[in-house]
Amino acid sequence: MELSFEVMLGGWIATGLTLFILSFLYEDNPLFKLAEHLYVGVSLGYTIVKTYDTVVMTLILRPILEKGEWSLLVPVVIGTLMLTRYVPKAAWLSRYAFAFIVGVGAGLAIPRTISSFILKQIEDTVRPLLTLVPGEGVTFTYSLLNPASNLNGIIILIGVVSVLFYFFFSVEHSGPGKMVARAGIVFLMISFGAAFGYTVMARMSLLIGRLTDLIEFSDASYGRPTLWLSLLTIGTLIWLSRRSGAHPPER
């Protein structure tokens, strides 16, 4: 299959950048630094363009010019006040912008946080220990695989209470309290371990994605960029390594 020039060029660039970043696994080197700075630049440029499109065009200019929503000039003025930070004599004006953002944020946070993150979480934690099933009477479900089972409900309750107690420093963790706090530590350790394992596997899936691309770009239809650029990267690393060996860095 004949590939277009853009796709082929894209394959070469994507392969080169992937290999340059991976070269960091050997040691910090100019190829990695080049790709790293390009990453910052491109992602910054991308963010600027997206912000321009969503904020300036979609939220400000189009509504004002097409629908006459002149009230949108108010947030524009507030936002502009932020930029007074660059004028030392007028920098205090930026406080109005920050005051507005922080005030709105705090006001929005109070009822929503209480409702969703405190009351709802407590409601889901303090569940009936037994279930009333019509026709069967009162039952206790043991299934560990069902997070809504009665057994899991008790485990979750113990976990939440013990972890909260572990972080509650107004009471000395001694006697029965010490036992509860230790249970909290065990729950925390399991959670940290799970978070670690989950993160590692997420990174691994990203790595698999990159390796899949490298395999795809090793195809002859792309001109085998993976092969040639791997040789180039390895060659450059060897050359850099020899050069730094010949000229050790000054202490």
């Binding site: 894209g10 994507a14 992937t18």
Partner: peptide, 16 residues
């Protein structure tokens, strides 16, 4: 597709 995605993906992948 050919610059940001590979750079971002590899940058996070090496963290593994």
């Amino acid at each position: 597709s050919y610059t940001l995605v590979p750079l971002q993906g590899t940058m996070f992948a090496i963290l593994a």
